[in-house]
Each structure stands twice: as structure tokens, then as C-alpha cells.
Design a protein around this nucleic acid. Structure first.
Length: 222
DNA sequence: ACCCAGGGTCATA
DNA sequence: TATGACCATGGG
């Protein structure tokens, strides 16, 4: 696993798509809410739900923590899984309040933040890392389905590797830089949304140069 | 009509 | 530990 290769891939994506300035939100707490709402859900629908929450003036830990579940579920209806996510948002909001609010959480160590978030119902590894990186600006490398697919195609991982294995490997290979991880994950997502989903894409996209497998699979694509 | 989207939990073997 | 069912709306 070469740092050079990972940085070269990053540079190619950055040159092509430009800085993404993630996460799109007005506050750290809104990042947390968005992270839960976007679970297996298109971001457009998350924006609709966030707008509805804003209209109802409930985008605050103490308010959300006490909001009746049916009201909350109705507000986030556009994201799908609204009953499930209503409970998750409430659990997360109650946890934030119990820890003394967002300001108190900003003093926590990165590992404690991660561990604490993972203890909240409905917050798994990816959602926790989205929050740690994009709400608190800590250097954790987020692994999502796009990351798995891209790095898999580039020959940097194999199918079925556990989340922690991948995260540890990429964090070890790259400098521990929150700004780098921020842009890298955002660029992977943007790239995935604007490129082919079904083909071994590195043979037909801007990352062709960096893809060792492109040599062996060359000619198989149209 | 189909597939999938910036996942996670829970029950089962 | 490893699958599978389930959650559910909206866009292409």
C-alpha cells in the first residue's frame, strides 16, 4: 500500500472535480442529523427532510430529543425509513444532551468521540466517522460503499474486507490530516455519482492511469 | 417496471 | 461470524 499511489489518486480527483468543501450544513449538529438521514438514502431527499426540520424549528439537540416520534417521523418522511430514523435521531439528540451539548463534545478525544457515538442506537461505523470527520474535524478516513468499490477496482482492497481493516490501512498509509480525509471522501462520492456503476470503471474514467488492473482488463470493455 | 441511494439492527444458523 | 430480512421514499 503506497502513500504515493493514494495521494496520486487524490490529486487526480481533486484536479478533475475541484474542492468539494464538505459537509454541506449550517452547524455541527446538522451534520450529525444529516449523517443519520443519509443512511442508504439519496442526498436530495436528505435536503428535503432537513428543510422540513428547519421549517419546524426543531434542529436543536434539546428540541429534537423531546419531540414526539410521530411528529419527527412525519417531518423526515422524504428520506424513507422514517420510523427507524426518527428513533435514531432522537437517540442521538438525547445522547448529545446527556453529554452536555455540542460544545462539551468538542473537547473530547477523537477515540472517545468515536466510541461514544458507536454506542448510540442507529450509529454504525460509517455514520460515526462521518460525524467525527465532518462535524468535529478529526482525522478519520471514512469507508463507504463507494470507497470500497473504487479502491477495490484500483486493486487496493479485496471484496468483503471489514470496515476497521480498511480504515486502519488507509489511515496508516496517509498522513493524519483531517482536511485531506475530508476532501478525499467527498471526491470519492462525487466521482462515484458521475461515473459508471457497472463496469470496472478504472478502465474508462479519469483514474485509468493509476489503475494497475486496467492493464489486465484492457480490451474487455467497450 | 426496475434499480438504487453518502447504512444499521435484529433474528437466525 | 456470517448471511438475510427489514426499514420506505423519490429519481433515473
Amino acid at each position: 500500500m503506497t502513500r504515493r499511489l493514494l495521494l496520486s489518486i487524490f490529486q487526480t480527483l481533486l484536479d478533475h472535480y475541484g474542492p468539494q468543501h464538505w459537509w454541506p450544513a449550517d452547524s455541527a449538529f446538522e451534520v450529525m442529523i444529516g449523517a443519520v438521514l443519509t443512511q442508504n438514502t439519496a442526498w436530495l431527499n436528505v435536503e428535503r427532510a432537513l428543510t422540513r426540520l428547519r421549517e419546524r424549528a426543531v434542529l436543536e439537540p434539546s428540541v429534537l430529543a423531546a419531540l414526539p416520534l410521530d411528529i419527527l417521523a412525519e417531518a423526515i418522511r422524504p428520506t424513507g425509513y422514517f420510523n427507524v430514523k426518527a428513533r435514531r435521531l432522537q437517540a442521538l439528540s438525547q445522547w448529545v444532551c446527556a453529554q452536555g451539548g455540542m460544545a462539551a463534545l468538542k473537547d473530547w478525544q477523537t477515540a472517545d468521540l468515536r466510541h461514544g457515538l458507536l454506542g448510540v442506537h442507529g450509529v454504525g461505523p460509517e455514520t460515526a466517522d462521518d460525524i467525527v470527520l465532518y462535524a468535529f474535524g478529526r482525522p478519520v478516513f471514512v469507508i463507504d460503499a463507494y470507497t470500497r468499490r473504487l479502491f477495490g477496482r484500483l486493486g487496493l482492497s479485496v471484496d468483503g474486507e471489514p470496515y476497521e481493516t480498511l480504515r486502519a490501512r488507509y489511515e496508516q498509509a496517509l498522513p493524519r490530516d483531517a482536511c485531506l480525509y475530508n476532501e478525499y471522501h467527498a471526491l470519492i462520492v462525487v466521482h462515484a455519482k458521475t461515473t459508471c456503476r457497472t463496469k470496472p470503471a478504472c478502465t474508462c474514467c479519469i483514474l485509468r492511469k493509476q489503475c494497475p488492473a486496467a492493464v489486465t482488463t484492457e480490451g474487455m470493455e467497450d
